[in-house]
Each structure stands twice: as C-alpha cells, then as structure tokens.
Simulated assay, not measured.
Amino acid sequence: MAARQGITILAADAAGPDAQRLLDELSDALLRINGDSGRSSFDAEAATPRGGFYVARDGAGQLLGCAALRPLGGPDSATAELKRMYARHGQSGVGAALLAHVEAQARCFGYARLHLSTRVANTRAVAFYAKHGYAPVVAWGKYVGAAQSVCLGKQL
C-alpha cells in the first residue's frame, strides 16, 4: 500500500469491476488519442508472482487511476514492463504516485529496469515519462519496427 497526497494505492484484481471501469476509460481515451484502444496488449488474467495490478483512490474511496506491472522476458527477467497506466483527467499527482508505486514494487520484486511502450501520438504520456527519467530503449516483441510506438525505460 502507498499513500501520497491523500492518494492510496493498493493491489487489486485486474478482472474486478473497479479495475475494469478504469481499464475501459483508459481504452476509450487511447482510442481517441491513438486510434487504437491498446486492449490487445494487456491480459487481465496474466498475474504472476512478480507482477501486479494497482488501483489508486482518494480519501473518499473514489477511483483515481491504475497501473500494471509484469515481467518482461520471462519469469527470471531483470526487466519489468509497466502496462495500462492511467490517471483520470484532472487528478493532479495521481500519475506520479502510481508510477512511483509501480517502480517501488518492481524493486521489491527484484527488477533492475522498468520498460514501457506508448504511442508516439500520445505526446502527453511521452513527456510525462521523460519528466520521470524514462529514455528510449530498444524495442521488444510486437513493438519492433512499429513506427507508431516508442519504447522507454529506466534503471531502477
């Protein structure tokens, strides 16, 4: 559990109703920005011992955002992947709190690096990650040769 500026972040079931509401909002937003919802890049059932899905709430219990962590490159990999990062519009500090939480969880799970992919068209996300120390990394998997994607990473 993490609490920052009245924000509480807890592990949650990615298939649960609150998580699905946030994931649906994220997919709708990505569809407007990128022309692709990104739904095919995330499997809610793919929980592992070295990953998780996290939901942020305010002091009144209202949903603020979510993020997921999963191994990248196998169960013993030193690299984790950040997936489905989302903060509801107008919720200042939620994205930074979620990112800090996922980074801390990744360290606890023994990861040395955290990678992510986003669309080039999502300039707001690209700028957010750059502000938090993420830089371009070599693309992996389906992102290899995908001109619409940018792969970013950070040493933990």
Rank of each mutant, 00 (worst) to 15 (best):
M1G: 12
A3S: 15
A3H: 14
Q5T: 07
T8Q: 11
G16N: 11
Q20W: 10
L22V: 10
E25F: 12
L26C: 04
L26A: 08
D28C: 09
A29E: 05
L30N: 14
R32G: 00
N34E: 11
G35I: 08
D36E: 13
S37C: 02
S41Q: 07
E45H: 15
P49F: 01
R50C: 03
R57E: 02
G61K: 12
Q62I: 01
L64S: 11
G65E: 07
C66I: 04
L69M: 12
R70W: 00
L72V: 01
G73V: 02
G73K: 11
S77C: 03
A78T: 06
R84E: 09
Y86C: 03
Y86I: 01
Y86T: 01
G95F: 14
A100Q: 15
A104K: 12
Q105D: 01
F109Q: 04
F109M: 04
H115V: 00
R124V: 12
A125E: 03
V126L: 08
V126T: 12
A127H: 09
A127V: 00
H132V: 02
Y134N: 06
A135K: 12
V138G: 09
A139C: 05
G141Y: 05
K142H: 09
A146D: 15
A147D: 13
A147C: 01
S149G: 00
V150R: 05
C151W: 11
G153H: 05
